[in-house]
């Protein structure tokens, strides 16, 4: 087969629901799109622990401290698993970390914001992880089988985080007026970023990641799914969602909402969020501080720092 015939056969295979393994031949544009997608996911898991780690030392009880520490360890583990998937596609892990720290690659919008109260810890673990699991569950059907298998494991662990977060929120909601106000205040701040998290509506007909089945659902599908499951669970606790336009449109069979602020999303993910630079700086410092461990175990770094 010549290259074009091979490429056509490959796309016919994945578009027909076929799977691809790490050692299989794949066209360069599929490999590039897949790498970009998985690398962004890995970056998000790695950076995603920083907002929460700030609360480990301030956790209210020993059990909460254990749970939060364990969640942070899980998320870093997810980053490791995903960088493993990505490096099989040809980009060395050291290069991915260097690009992240240099601001050349992105991580999810929600990890560019500050965590101001213990209420944020509950809202993040419950709703940010819930929004993430909706898209991660859809990735279990990815045409790239090593990614799909990794997502099965990650989803299982994320379901623990959501229970931890919901438990934190429920405990606060059963507490004092001040605690309830703390959850409401956290929800008010996080709702905008949550609605932006899955990204603007895209045209499924031109979305290559969707056509090649790297992902199996488009942005608006994921957001609708998130709203269908979580709006009732938020409202039943007596919380208010800070969007007066939010309602389920029976006739259209979909949620209506105020258009999320896409300019904010673009600005935040390109490194202009309230905490973007501090979080990257923290990660740079931590890389330097832990260099001696890597030197001791695997020898001095062979890849030049960016």
């Amino acid at each position: 087969m010549n290259d074009q015939a091979l490429t056509d056969a490959f796309y016919a295979h994945v578009m027909g629901g076929g799977k691809v393994e790490a050692d299989d031949w794949m066209p360069d544009d599929y490999r590039a799109a897949l790498l970009k997608f998985v690398e962004m996911h890995a970056n998000s898991e790695l950076m995603g622990v920083l907002p929460e780690r700030e609360w480990i030392l301030r956790a209210p009880t020993l059990r909460r401290k254990l749970a939060l520490t364990s969640k942070v360890q899980d998320e870093v583990g997810h980053a490791q698993l995903l960088y493993r998937v990505a490096e099989d596609l040809g980009k060395p892990r050291e290069q991915m970390l260097a690009d992240l720290l240099a601001g050349k690659t992105k991580f999810h919008n929600v990890f560019h914001y500050p965590t101001r109260s213990w209420g944020d810890v509950g809202i993040i673990a419950w709703l940010v992880d819930a929004a993430a699991i909706v898209s991660q569950q859809a990735l279990r059907d990815s045409s790239y089988a090593p990614y799909a298998r990794t997502m099965k494991k990650i989803c299982w662990e994320e379901s623990v985080h959501i229970m931890h977060g919901r438990d934190v929120v429920l405990t606060l909601m059963n507490g004092t007026d001040a605690q309830r106000a703390m959850v409401q205040e956290a929800l008010d701040r996080w709702w905008g970023p949550l609605m932006q998290m899955h990204g603007p509506k895209t045209d499924p007909a031109t979305d290559r990641d969707l056509i090649w089945k790297i992902k199996s659902k488009h942005n608006e599908q994921l957001r609708q799914e998130f709203l269908s499951i979580y709006v009732p669970r938020i409202l039943e606790l007596g919380l208010t969602i800070p969007d007066p336009a939010l309602r389920y449109d029976q006739a259209e069979g979909r949620w209506q909402y105020t258009e999320p602020d896409w300019d904010e999303l673009r600005s935040v993910v390109t490194g202009h969020g309230p905490m973007s630079q501090q979080r990257l700086e923290f990660r740079r410092t931590s890389r330097d501080d832990t260099q001696w461990v890597r030197d001791a175990i695997i020898g001095p770094a062979t890849v030049a720092a960016a």
Binding site: Q73, Q80, L81, E87, D88, K153
Partner: peptide, 27 residues
């Protein structure tokens, strides 16, 4: 069953990674 893969210079560190990623939750 296949769980995934880890990258390590030797089997001792490979086992350490495997235990962190696949053995911490009684799974």
């Amino acid at each position: 069953v296949h769980g995934g893969s880890v990258r390590a210079p030797d089997e001792e560190l490979a086992l350490h990674y495997a235990r962190e990623f696949y053995g911490r939750r009684q799974e």
